[in-house]
Amino acid sequence: MTSSEPDSGWLRISAIQHYAYCPRQAYLLSDGVWADNHLTVQGTAGHERVDAGGADRRRGVVVHHRVPLVSHELRLHGIADAVEQHRDGRLLPVEHKRGRGAGDLLPSLAQVVAQAICLEEMLDVEVPEVALYITKERRRDVYRTEEHRSRVVSLVEEARLRLQEEIPPNFASRLCQSCSVRNACQPRGAEWR
């Protein structure tokens, strides 16, 4: 990708995570709506090290932080929290999340698998696994990229189409209670119980 901004057909990798969580949330964020809540502030604090950029070594593994990514094929761009480069040359993108996103890992998995797809295209390598690090639990789980690839590619195409038009609110208490943009989404008194 050149230094110029991608055209409107491009999506941010993070938009895929938001879209998988709630299409309305992704729509509002793409429209410039943003609000912090206690969860986003905690998430930012949990990203302090990875957001600093650079690289370090841990047990023989080089960990690159804040890695720019692009896929021209899927028209995606964004930043990986961390990409581990193992001694055997294997790359492992690691997405840091505060928690498990209302109990559903699909949004976070979609984001990190999209990162793997970008790395594969950029470097002409296979990225067989991805990892999620849940900061609240200090737990890291590894997942096979191939098990989630087709779902992520479908999500990218679905999001690209749907985010071109307004997505109406759809109250889902499990998701809405933790959403930082809930007041912008449903300001007229939806029940937040």
Score class of each variant (00 low, 15 high):
D56N: 12
G103F: 10
Q115E: 11
A131E: 12
E166M: 12
R174H: 13
V113W: 02
T2A: 09
T44H: 10
S173R: 14
Q17D: 14
R149N: 07
L28Q: 02
L11N: 00
V67R: 00
E166A: 15
N183E: 14
G101E: 04
A35P: 04
G99W: 03
A45P: 06
V83R: 00
L175I: 14
A184V: 03
H96Y: 15
R87I: 10
V130D: 01
Y21F: 15
E146P: 05
N37R: 03
S4P: 05
Q25E: 15
E146K: 09
P107Q: 06
L161F: 13
I134N: 01
H65W: 05
G53S: 09
V113M: 04
A82Y: 01
D81S: 02
E166V: 11
P107N: 11
A102R: 07
L69N: 02
S154W: 08
T135L: 07
E157K: 09
G60P: 11
S180K: 02
S154I: 04
A80H: 01
R66A: 13
G89W: 06
H38D: 15
I16L: 09
R140I: 09
E5R: 11
S4F: 08
L105V: 04
N37A: 07
A55K: 14
R87Q: 12
A102E: 08
